[in-house]
């Protein structure tokens, strides 16, 4: 293995995840659900549009989850499967999915932590299945080709333009 494990995210994956998360948001009374991968990249957002920088949010979420993972191990736990951050009005609940991505749920006082936790359980099970299939598919070499010809040359030109030729 040379670098980070590779995987891709297709439109049909997005559709399935969208369906699961839309149903979950309705049942849990939560506002927004995000899927972030453990390297800090945002994969999907469903629900109300967020008012913050989602890219920065995703990198901090992954760091938060990873740091807590290490804390769990120090306590002799294999992991903390979920985290909860409580605010005065806004709260967030984070749950592990297939050990590769994190489900982040944003909710306010119009629902309760108990209901969110309860509904996350079902959604997490469905998402686990989707992501496990997705990773297996990528690993068996049936992933679509990455980028079309000409991409590399154009990307290099853009790098020169942005970072100075």
């Amino acid at each position: 293995m040379s670098g980070a494990s590779s995987w891709s995210f297709r439109e049909e994956d997005a559709r399935r995840i969208n369906e699961i998360l839309s149903a979950f948001l309705g049942e849990a009374g939560a506002r927004t659900a995000l899927i972030v991968d453990r390297t800090g990249q945002l994969i999907a957002t469903v629900g109300e549009e967020v008012q913050f920088d989602p890219t920065a949010f995703a990198s901090l979420t992954a760091a938060d989850f990873s740091a807590n993972d290490q804390l769990a191990r120090m306590l002799g736990e294999p992991e903390f499967g979920a985290l909860f951050h409580q605010g005065e009005r806004e709260s967030m609940y984070l749950a592990d999915i297939a050990r590769r991505v994190i489900l982040v749920v944003l909710f306010d006082n119009s629902t309760t932590l108990g209901l969110v936790k309860l509904r996350v359980r079902t959604a997490a099970k469905e998402l686990n299945q989707v992501f496990t299939e997705m990773f297996e598919r990528t690993d068996d070499g049936t992933a679509p080709p990455a980028v079309e010809g000409g991409f590399l040359g154009e990307a290099e030109d853009e790098i020169d333009r942005l970072f100075g030729a």
Partner: peptide, 15 residues
């Protein structure tokens, strides 16, 4: 390798 998101047509690379 970087993650390629075909749904949002995004490629994110981590340096």
């Amino acid at each position: 390798m970087s993650m390629i998101n075909y749904a949002s047509r995004e490629i994110n690379c981590k340096l």
